[in-house]
Amino acid sequence: MDKRYAFSRIAAEVNAGAMTFPTSAGHAMKLRSELDNPNCQIETAARLIRAEPLLCARIVAMSNAIAFNHSGRNTSDVHTAITRLGFRTVRTLAVAHITRQLASGSGTPGCKAMAEQLWEHTAHVASLAHLIARRVTHVDPEAALFAGIVHAIGGFYLLSLAASAPGLLAGDRTDWLETGRSEVGRAVLGVLNAPANVLEAVEAYWEGYLTIPPRSLGDTLLLADELAPVASPFSLSGSLKPGEDGAPSLDMVIGKETLTAILEDSRSDVESLITGLMA
């Protein structure tokens, strides 16, 4: 199978409007569109969220994460959750739900396991990106969270196609990493109408050059990806865990601190975001 050709063809089909979303993502799509309307009422958003229990649970869980729950009191009320998070974060979580649901129907147990691992990786990257934006690069944390959520969306779409074309996932991943993920990802992000700054950040992530010290939203995303302790199932780095011989070691001075110290200091903050995204 000529995988590069196959990936280009998938991207072309998405660009031509052939991409379909699972029904479980339908409410999230509707919610996302509704939140694009500047006159959207909080009650309308709450009604759409309540109609999809999984999305509802995830939004409530996220509103209880340390980064958003400044009072320290947990809530189970959707209305309160929306107020805490704000429409922009709720919109991001709607896209997170769509992303996760994309591969929910993946056929074989192997594909299901890959989809689970890819979501776990995504949750780590998005949470770390939010932190790095706040503490290191000082770019928009909401945009960083969004970029983290969608950075591997091409992979989720590929997994959703795996049942009908299992050869796409077989063997070496080099073709996917070198050309496929950017071609397919770009096309899917176009369908999702991702903001220009997020598209630029994801393009920088595909390009792969991390500026040291990091500055941009793209650097924020790339650094989060490099620090994520759970590797993408499409990466080659899964074989080495932190602390093992030969495991990667990345650190840098950020002002008067080091990146390692900032990460250690913010561990519970990041963990609570991950828990919210994994709900």
Binding site: Y209, I212, L236, S237, G246, S249, L250, D251, M252
Partner: peptide, 17 residues
């Protein structure tokens, strides 16, 4: 000489500019 940043080890080759 202070080492202000490093990216060592792991299963990659690296391009540095």
């Amino acid at each position: 000489i202070p080492l202000t940043a490093s990216d060592f080890l792991g299963p990659w080759s690296r391009k540095v500019l």
